[in-house]
Write a protein that binds this DNA or RNA. Structure first.
Length: 227
DNA sequence: GCGACAG
DNA sequence: ATCTTGTCGC
C-alpha cells in the first residue's frame, strides 16, 4: 500500500514520519541518468538554535558554465526537531517553499545530506527528490550508516559504502588530500551517474559548487536577518 | 546498558 | 547545526 504524500503537508510526530519513509522508499528508482544535463540545482538549509528559525536556499546552475541562473529562498520557524534519520522532516518544509520560488526546473539536484545511505534507505536527497519529481543526489560530509574503507588520497578515488549487505553509496575523494564525502543515490539516478556529476562539480573545492554556494547563500540570509 | 548519530 | 584558538599549508 503506497500513496503520494502531499508535498505541503508534513508530519509533526515521529511515528507518522517513520510510516511516510517506509511508504516513500518503495517508490524510489535507480537508473542511469539519461539525456544531457544542462542545469543542476543545489539545496541547503541553515538554522540558528537561538532564534529557532530556518533559512533555505535553492540555487540553479548552468551545468557547463557552473554559474547561477536562478534562485529561490525561504525563511520560517522550526517545525520539527533534529533527529538522526529524520532530517528531511526538519528541512523539507522550508526547502520545499524555496523550491517553489524557482522558475527553472533543474535536470538534477544535489543535497547536503544522504540519499539511500540511510537507516531506512530514504534520506533527505531521496525523499525530496522523489516528491519534487527531480533526479537527486545525496552528498554528505559525514557518515550516517554503513561501513567502508578509506579511499586513496588522490582526487577521484572512491570506496563502497555498505549497509545491510547493500551498496548504499560511495566514499569519494573529490580533491586530492582532503576528507572524502559520502555520495549516494537520491532518486531516479544510479551511483555511477551520481559520482560522475559530483566530480564534475568539484573542480575547486571539496564540496560540489551547487551545495557549497547554497550554503554560502543561507548563511548570508541569516546574517542579514539576525546579525 | 553502551556506542553511533546526515544537519 | 553549535561550541571555540590557534595554526599548518596551498
Amino acid at each position: 500500500m503506497s500513496r503520494i504524500f502531499p508535498p505541503h503537508s508534513w508530519p509533526s510526530g515521529y511515528h507518522e514520519a517513520l510510516r511516510i519513509q517506509e511508504d516513500l522508499v518503495q517508490r524510489l528508482r535507480f537508473e542511469p541518468l539519461t539525456g544531457p544535463v544542462e542545469t543542476i540545482g543545489g539545496v541547503d538549509i541553515s538554522y540558528s538554535k537561538k532564534s529557532r528559525r530556518m533559512y533555505a536556499a535553492v540555487l540553479v546552475f548552468d551545468y557547463a558554465r557552473m554559474q547561477v541562473i536562478d534562485e529561490g529562498t525561504w525563511i520560517q520557524d522550526e517545525t520539527f526537531p533534529y533527529i538522526p534519520g529524520m532530517l528531511t522532516f526538519r528541512e523539507g518544509p522550508a526547502a520545499t517553499r524555496a523550491m517553489e520560488k524557482i522558475s527553472i526546473r533543474p535536470d538534477v539536484m544535489l543535497f547536503d545530506g544522504h540519499g539511500i545511505a540511510h537507516p531506512r534507505f530514504c534520506g533527505t536527497a531521496s525523499h525530496l527528490g522523489l516528491i519534487w519529481g527531480i533526479p537527486s543526489i545525496g552528498v554528505a560530509k559525514k557518515k550516517l550508516v554503513g561501513e567502508y574503507t578509506e579511499p586513496d588520497p588522490e582526487a577521484g578515488s572512491a570506496t563502497e559504502l555498505i549497509y545491510k549487505d547493500r551498496v548504499v553509496g560511495r566514499v569519494l575523494r573529490t580533491r586530492t588530500n582532503v576528507k572524502p564525502v559520502f555520495v549516494s543515490q537520491g532518486n531516479r539516478i544510479d551511483l555511477d551517474s551520481a559520482v560522475r556529476v559530483v566530480l564534475a562539480c568539484c573542480s575547486r573545492h571539496r564540496l560540489p559548487e551547487p551545495t557549497r554556494r547554497a550554503h554560502l547563500r543561507v548563511n548570508e540570509l541569516r546574517r542579514k536577518a539576525e546579525g
